[in-house]
Amino acid sequence: MKLVDLERKLIAVARANPPGDSVPPSFERRMMALILKGPVQDLWAGWAKALWFAAAPCVAVMLLCSGWAMVESARHPQPSSVDLAQQLDNTLLAAVDQNAE
């Protein structure tokens, strides 16, 4: 069997038999009812979209805060004895320390 011939034959078959253009009855009316009803609200899709939109501003705020913190730490260097870890410890344990006193 010659594949090229079969290919040509099948294409000729497809050309010789174009699809019909009949439209189901009252399609226009159904379509207009759909259009006039308006788009269906998909709450989950809306929520996901909102999250995606929120991601960019969040990253921007994070970058701004990081930059600001870096600039501030460069302008006002902390004494070497008080490092960030120590400050974090003090802040987190402040409530415990107060209770102990």
Partner: peptide, 9 residues
Amino acid sequence: SPRVFATAR
């Protein structure tokens, strides 16, 4: 619609 249906088919 006839053209749209023919394309969809």
